[in-house]
């Protein structure tokens, strides 16, 4: 689908405000129905200061943003939407010091609802650290 929506531009401008901006999430690449973002490591996002392992909350934010944008990529335009539900499975802890790469994919859009899924890894896509599944409602 021809797309007028530019996810790279979106993330580097509007996406740098608010919570996404605080986490420093950056754009990496996108496909026809997907968007891949990067969450740089930040000890301020650790769940346990002793290990430095990331809390799982920032992974939720990363996957929320990557899957959100994948909907706009697939539909070729930005539409207001709200997360209905998002489930994240934590397959293993993220390695302290490593950036986390999150890929969101929109696999179905209906009149009211978009269905998404995604995975996150910290260097090797074949060894994901998290899996996400969710639904969004158009406003």
């Amino acid at each position: 689908m021809a797309t007028e929506f530019d996810p790279g531009l979106f993330v580097s401008t509007l996406g740098q405000h608010g919570h996404n901006g605080r986490l420093g999430i950056r754009y990496l690449e996108h496909g026809a129905d997907s968007c891949t973002l990067v969450l740089p490591y930040d000890s301020g996002l650790a769940g346990d200061p002793e290990t430095g392992i990331l809390a799982s909350g920032p992974i939720v934010t990363l996957m929320d943003m990557a899957t959100s944008i994948s909907i706009w990529v697939r539909s070729g335009m930005v539409r207001p939407q709200a997360t209905l539900d998002l489930r994240v499975d934590y397959l293993r802890p993220a390695t302290p010091g490593k950036a986390v790469v999150g890929r969101g994919e929109c696999y179905r859009i209906t009149r009211n609802v978009a269905f998404v899924r995604g995975q996150a890894h910290d260097g090797d896509p074949d060894h994901p650290i998290a899996h996400a599944a969710g639904t969004y409602m158009f406003l």
Binding site: G57, V60, T61, A82, T83, L86
Partner: peptide
């Protein structure tokens, strides 16, 4: 942000 709410709930 939904992610911030998710983090808070967690």
């Amino acid at each position: 942000h939904g992610g911030a709410l998710g983090g808070m709930l967690e």
